[in-house]
Structure formats: C-alpha cells, structure tokens
Design a protein around this nucleic acid. Structure first.
Ligand SMILES: [Mn+2]
Ligand SMILES: [Mn+2]
Ligand SMILES: [Zn+2]
Ligand SMILES: [Zn+2]
Lengths: 149, 149
DNA sequence: ATCATATTGATTTCGATTATCAATATCACC
DNA sequence: GGTGATATTGATAATCGAAATCAATATGAT
C-alpha cells in the first residue's frame, strides 16, 4: 500500500512551508495518470489540453519540486532532455531503451545490484545512486530493421 | 599490442578521403598523453598552452572525429558536459564517479555484463550499448565528509 | 605549381533549461 | 470575511554546452 500522490504532495508542501496551488494539483494529476517517462515538453503538451493557461516554466519548476518530494524520478537518457516518471513504489528499476522507436522497458535485477555494491566496496567507494541503461532495439524494431530501411 | 594512435588516425583519414592536418595531429597527441576523461573545455585549455592558435570549434569537431575513428570514447555523465577518453584497448569498462571531487574510477565486471545480456534476451531486446555509472563518494571524500563540511 | 576541395577559426545560432520580475494567489492572523 | 506578508505564477530573457555558418586557408592529387 501507498499514500495517495495528492496526499503525499500536500504533506510535503506543508512540511516545507510551501503553498498548495491549483497548478501543482493539476500537474500532478495529469502526470500520474499519463503513464511513465514523460519529458517536460510532453507533459506540457498534455497539460495544455485540459489547462491551457498553464505556463511552461511552471511545469519545469513543478517537476523539480515533485522530484524533491519523492513523487517523481528524474531521468536523463542519451536523447538530450530530462524525463520524469512517477515513483509509484519505493522499488528501484533500470531501463532498456530502444534507439529506434524510443520504447522504454523497465527491469529489476537484484543480482546486478549486489554486484554493483561489491564493485563499490572493492574500490572503497560509497555508492549513493547509479544509472544502468541498455540501448538497442526492442523486439518490434528488431524485426522491422531486418526487413526494410 | 595495438596500433599507435597517430597511425590509426592516418589510416582512418585515408580510408575516408579526409585530410591529415597539423591540428588533428596536435590534438591527438595532447589528448592521448593527457590522461583520461577530458571535457572539451579541459582539452581546449590544454591545447592552448602548446598551440595557442587552435580554435574552439576545431577541438569539438576533432573529438567527434576521433570518436568515429574509434580513437576516443564519448562519455556523458550527469554533470552536463561531454567527456572523451582515449580508447587504448578494445576492452569495455564502466565508471564509479565521485560526486564530491569528480574522481573517476574505472571497473570491469564480466558477470554484470553477462547479466545485462540475459536481461536483454529475456525482453526480446537486442542490446547494442550500455551505460553503467555508479555515483557516490570515493575513499578520500568519504573520510573528509565524516569530519567537516 | 595549380586547383578542387576539405579544414580551420571566429562567430553566430540552437535548444533545453534556468533566472528574472511584475502580477497574482495563498494562507496565517485577525 | 478582510488584511497583508510571502510564495507562486507566467511571460520572457538569459544561460550554456554544442552545433552550424562562412570566408579565409591548408591539403594533396595532378
Ligand atoms: Mn522507469
Ligand atoms: Mn573510463
Ligand atoms: Zn523499438
Ligand atoms: Zn572524491
């Protein structure tokens, strides 16, 4: 089980002495319901449909805020812009990224995580975060590539 | 054993119908002897000492060229700018990155590589490249952090 | 040495993100 | 419910690494 996103936001804002605004509520609702791995641009476009008055800068600022509140994970793949995904659980996962269609597949592998920790230890290194991204072709694109283009 | 960097560059240029220039030779010499993981800015500063006439854009262009020639690996860590490291061997390695002092430690772990491949296979994914970066504190900075600041 | 063409270096442009700032919304306090 | 201090918004400008532009120059095949 998990605290609802809206409640988590209110708690964070209250705890930090920040204000609850319509924009923050609306962005959160759209962000959570939209699915995963949204760029700010994509999220802004989604917002405009329901809330045309929303400002570009507000979406940027608010996503940074959500990341600090633990509501969103900030991702930087190799395509040049920042993406966010809703942190539905406390669990960690990494990503397979299709370089052809942009599809993103998530995976968890405890053994890899353990080995990373052992590598860190071996180098007297205190690991605080990590990024494992595997780039290539997803199943669909693998087939298409063989045929044409 | 390995073909000398200068020779590898000449071969690549010849093969592509490109021209051999003093700038390319000089940048390569400085780049190779400098050590690893240089940002373009850092490399440009090194170049200026021995070759003040070198242009900023030329360093950018030339590093891209070296990457295509297989002489340099292009790295994009989370600090916002591109780095290059000389590809001395054909071997692959990943990185531990100290977020306090910027130190970069290299590691190889065949077991992790295997597990990545098995994750890809399990998802019908054709892996073409990957990026594994572990961020945290190096041995030195771990001690310093405990004391002050 | 000639000449077509690749390269250089100074500079401008680009694009994602951040900073600025006047107008507005929120909320603790009355 | 009003008041007022302060946080937030939205339009816009600034930032900054990287890429594009272009006239001047270097290269190399002939
Ligand atoms: Mn994900
Ligand atoms: Mn390295
Ligand atoms: Zn795909
Ligand atoms: Zn360190």
């Amino acid at each position: 089980m998990r605290k609802p996103a809206a409640q988590q936001l209110q708690d964070y804002l209250a705890g930090q002495g920040l204000k609850s605004t319509h924009q923050r509520d609306e962005i959160l609702a759209v962000f959570v319901s939209a699915g995963r791995h949204l760029s700010v641009e994509e999220l802004y476009e989604l917002m405009k449909k329901e809330h045309p008055r929303i400002g570009y800068a507000t979406v940027y600022r608010t996503m940074k805020l959500f990341a600090q509140a633990g509501l969103a994970e900030e991702l930087r793949f190799d395509d040049g812009f920042t993406r966010y995904e809703y942190k539905a659980s406390d669990g960690h996962h990494d990503h397979l990224i299709c370089t052809r269609c942009g599809r993103i597949i998530e995976f968890e592998n405890d053994r890899i995580e353990e080995l990373q920790e052992s590598v860190a230890k071996k180098n007297r290194f205190l690991a605080q975060s990590h990024k494992l991204e595997i780039y290539g072709l997803c199943g669909d694109c693998r087939g298409k590539r063989a045929k044409k283009e």
